[in-house]
Write a protein that binds this DNA or RNA. Structure first.
Length: 269
DNA sequence: ATAATAACCTGAGGGC
DNA sequence: TGCCCTCAGGTTATTA
């Protein structure tokens, strides 16, 4: 579910409630996530939280003796609520804080994860090979051109590959490609540098705009305060059944790498 | 190395 | 109402 804007929204939403707090208690109701929750997590009681930040689609929370690595998978979300608030069927983890509030992790499909490392979290096996942040200066025309060259894969697959660039998922890949006028099926290595420059720009613009709207809520996603994200109303092709708002041609839906892609045959080539 | 596929889950929604 | 099918914001391991 969550792509970079949703993870960013979640991170910013929970941070003020967590910073400087001591962990009173962990309640783990279901350990079977993407990877089983290690018992090391149970040992974090009493430790203090020093920061809450994002890398790609991971949320990192350093405490006294290491760092928690959270991932929301396809259907995960986090909320901060009073300790004794009702427990949802899919609320797998509750982290009770000294403030009397709890960080509650809900994830119906259980593709999310909660890991712990005592070492440098950015050197963790799952994070050390990640590509650059799309909103950073490291993600620029020269970089995208270099990783696209000689690649036969589709441009959509490439920008959704976290080892090339992080954070761009199925929604924003379709949206950014629409804004750049590039078909999702285009072979990455066949696109001119000029058009890739445009794509870099539209990826950044699309993600910035979505963050400003609190992300996109389709089904499961909610912000830490329970509100939905409002970017859904700004989607131009993803999930659109009707005609293109720019040229009037019917939006097409196709399948690429087992995922749905949407594009406008009039605006994108 | 690259690229495409299977796999991990639950729930919503449509057709009958 | 119920059953069966398809689809869903992700990522890793496996297979060519």
């Amino acid at each position: 579910m969550p792509e970079l804007p949703e993870v960013e929204t979640t991170t910013n939403g929970i941070r003020p409630h967590l910073l400087g707090q001591r962990i009173e208690r962990f309640i783990i109701r279901e350990r079977r996530l993407r990877w089983p929750i290690s018992e090391a997590i149970d040992q974090l009681t009493g430790q203090k939280i020093y920061d809450v930040y994002r890398r790609g689609k991971y949320i990192l929370i350093p405490v006294d003796q290491g760092t928690m690595l959270w991932h929301l998978g396809m259907s995960g979300s986090m909320r901060v609520l009073p300790v004794n608030s009702p427990v949802d069927k899919h609320e797998h983890v509750e982290m009770q804080l000294a403030s009397g509030q709890s960080l509650k992790f809900r994830d119906p499909r259980r593709f999310g994860s909660l890991l712990f490392t005592k070492a440098d979290p950015l050197q963790h096996k799952l994070l050390c090979k990640l590509g650059p942040e799309p909103l950073s200066v490291e993600f620029n025309t020269d970089y995208l051109y270099r990783v696209c060259r000689h690649r036969s894969t589709s441009i959509k697959s490439l920008i959704m590959d976290s080892h090339r660039v992080v954070g761009v998922g199925n929604i924003y890949a379709s949206e950014a490609l629409f804004s750049a006028g590039i078909r999702p099926t285009r072979e990455a290595g066949s696109i001119s540098k000029k058009r890739l420059a445009k794509l870099v720009e539209t990826i950044k613009r699309t993600l910035h705009a979505a963050i400003a709207q609190g992300g996109t809520t389709l089904q499961d996603f909610s912000r830490a305060d329970g509100k939905p994200g409002y970017f859904k109303q700004s989607l131009q092709v993803y999930g659109v059944k009707g005609d293109c708002s720019v040229c009037g041609k019917p939006i097409k839906q196709i399948t690429q790498n087992q995922r749905s892609s949407y594009y406008c045959p009039g605006c994108q080539s």
